[in-house]
């Protein structure tokens, strides 16, 4: 927290468009405000809404970089607005909604709906052999390192940055994206999920799944959680090719 007193004038150029309003067309609106120490885009946008334009739409929930609500295009690249500190940016900041997802208005997109659809399609839950559990009994042991490895992949916050950064997802709307492929990698690793590679092939063994990935790796480079998307997708590709060529 540098105690410097030179407050810059920030110019935030936000994309404005309300698809629900008849006749509305996308345009850029510029807001000027004075930078404060430690200012994040969450603070800046909240201030704009409070003091300048109460109609500006955007989404924040946790404002702490863990919920994945505030993904937006910040100077052309997807990122979490809440943990983007303005002092790291130029005084001119351009903000746009994440592409691919349904636009609600201005900077707000319906990534939740997309994610739910992805989860339903890829069945992103543990498929156990039996459902009846005896909860009184001691839990099944699990290798500590394996538990950590599963957690590593479970860290995805479904913010949609990977999808918005993906050339394939931009061109083909049914592509499951890095988020979907990472989920499959996560459940594949989880010993509690009894699905086999044959089952996973049914879910991602096509050009909407792992074979649609062109390895542009923008997902890996923009992931706010630094998930190992490159290696996980490569790994999944190898397994699915083995399944597809031998199965």
């Amino acid at each position: 927290m540098a105690d410097n007193d030179s407050h810059r004038k920030l110019r935030i150029h936000a994309l404005r468009y309300n698809p629900a309003k008849a006749g509305d067309t996308p345009r850029i609106q510029t807001y000027e405000l004075e930078e404060a120490p430690g200012m994040t885009l969450f603070i800046a946008l909240s201030e704009i809404r409070e003091k300048q334009d109460p109609s500006l739409q955007f989404d924040f929930v946790c404002r702490a970089g863990i919920c994945g609500s505030c993904g937006m295009m910040i100077n052309g690249r997807p990122g979490l607005a809440c943990r983007t500190v303005t002092k790291d940016l130029e005084a001119d900041i351009s903000l746009a909604p994440l592409p691919v997802f349904e636009l609600i208005g201005d900077l707000s997109v319906n990534s939740g709906k997309w994610m739910r659809g992805m989860s339903e399609k890829l069945e992103t839950w543990v498929h156990a052999q039996e459902r009846a559990l005896d909860l009184k009994r001691i839990e099944e042991p699990m290798d500590p390192a394996l538990a950590e490895a599963v957690y590593e992949l479970d860290r995805c916050i479904e913010c949609g940055c990977c999808v918005a950064s993906c050339g394939t997802a931009r061109m083909r709307e049914d592509f499951v994206g890095a988020v979907g492929l990472n989920k499959i990698a996560r459940f594949r690793l989880d010993p509690r999920d009894k699905r086999t590679d044959a089952d996973f092939y049914e879910l991602v063994g096509d050009d909407n799944g792992v074979f649609g990935c062109m390895s542009l790796l923008a997902c890996h480079d923009v992931c706010p959680k630094n998930l190992p998307l490159q290696t996980q997708i490569a790994f999944l590709r190898r397994k699915m090719v083995v399944q597809g060529t031998q199965g």
Partner: peptide, 23 residues
């Protein structure tokens, strides 16, 4: 048998061609 075990038996099986083509 494998897919029957986890309730995916009724699904149409996916083509193997995407894997072959990718490879």
């Amino acid at each position: 048998n494998v897919i029957a075990g986890v309730g995916l038996a009724d699904r149409p099986r996916k083509s193997r061609w995407p894997a072959r083509m990718d490879l």
